[in-house]
Design a protein around this nucleic acid. Sequence first.
DNA 1: CGCGTATACGTGTAGTTACACCCATATGCT
DNA 2: AGCATATGGGTGTAACTACACGTATACGCG
Lengths: 150, 150
Amino acid sequence: MPTAPSIPAFGCTCARLRKLTRRLTRIYDAHLSAQGIKVTQYSLLANAARGERTLSEFAAELEMDRSTLSRNLAPLAEQGWVSIAVGADPRSRSISVTAAGRRKLKTTLPLWRKAQCEVEAILGAASVGELHREIERALGALPTTSGKRP
Amino acid sequence: MPTAPSIPAFGCTCARLRKLTRRLTRIYDAHLSAQGIKVTQYSLLANAARGERTLSEFAAELEMDRSTLSRNLAPLAEQGWVSIAVGADPRSRSISVTAAGRRKLKTTLPLWRKAQCEVEAILGAASVGELHREIERALGALPTTSGKRP
DNA sequence: CGCGTATACGTGTAGTTACACCCATATGCT
DNA sequence: AGCATATGGGTGTAACTACACGTATACGCG
């Protein structure tokens, strides 16, 4: 274990990350708002388009609580962009993107692209690349679940 | 502007960042839960301890919506850790940490430290340093507000 | 077949986040 | 002094997030 963490709270990695997340989310949301969708919903939709999966599988991929995903999908289902059907196992829910969802993705992609490009233009491609590398490294190394299972 | 962003959505900087934030938040929260406090609340408390400020000033520093901060402070005020008093300008609210809040900070610091150290131990100090550098760089460059004011 | 356990979700509760809008007070100008 | 405007906060609404707990169905064993 390292001797000591940098600073008592102002250097909290989690807090700094949350702050950046707030900033970035605002930027993306501002661009996407013209299409009445938020970046969280957009990426949920884009991820769902990768193929039909059960709620649990989907949640595991996103490392999101099942109940969180369930609730986050609700507005998308209301808009008719995703379908939440009873799966082979009747306890399960099969999540898939509808035709309308695919259309929505197509029309919102340019907005997302503009947001992403704006960020890359401001930070520079190199910086964004470095940020991504560090994020991926962290995602690859940190435990998915905060270990405490019997 | 860069030619084109990396990938249609799976490489979305915002989404990757949000995923990492979820992971990290879970780790910190797991450590802090022994003291019945969340990392968001802990860092709010730690930040508040930097000095008395009005709600607006505090919100501006954290780049958080005033209403968000107001609601996030409510549970801390209920626990008696922060005081929300009427300021010089009676419209304003003066936020400060109470003695109980300072005690709480003292008792929870070791838990936060353990979380921070665990992260540094897993990722390596160099990687955490690089991550911080990139976060700070981004926070320094990106616009605070998603520009759209008359 | 029937029972115990494991699995898949939903609900309750609580906190985080932001936007739109409203109310009250301060401030500046005439 | 009086009014227009600006500023500081709160509320309504909605979405994101997770944990604890409950319900229903599947699955394996006797």
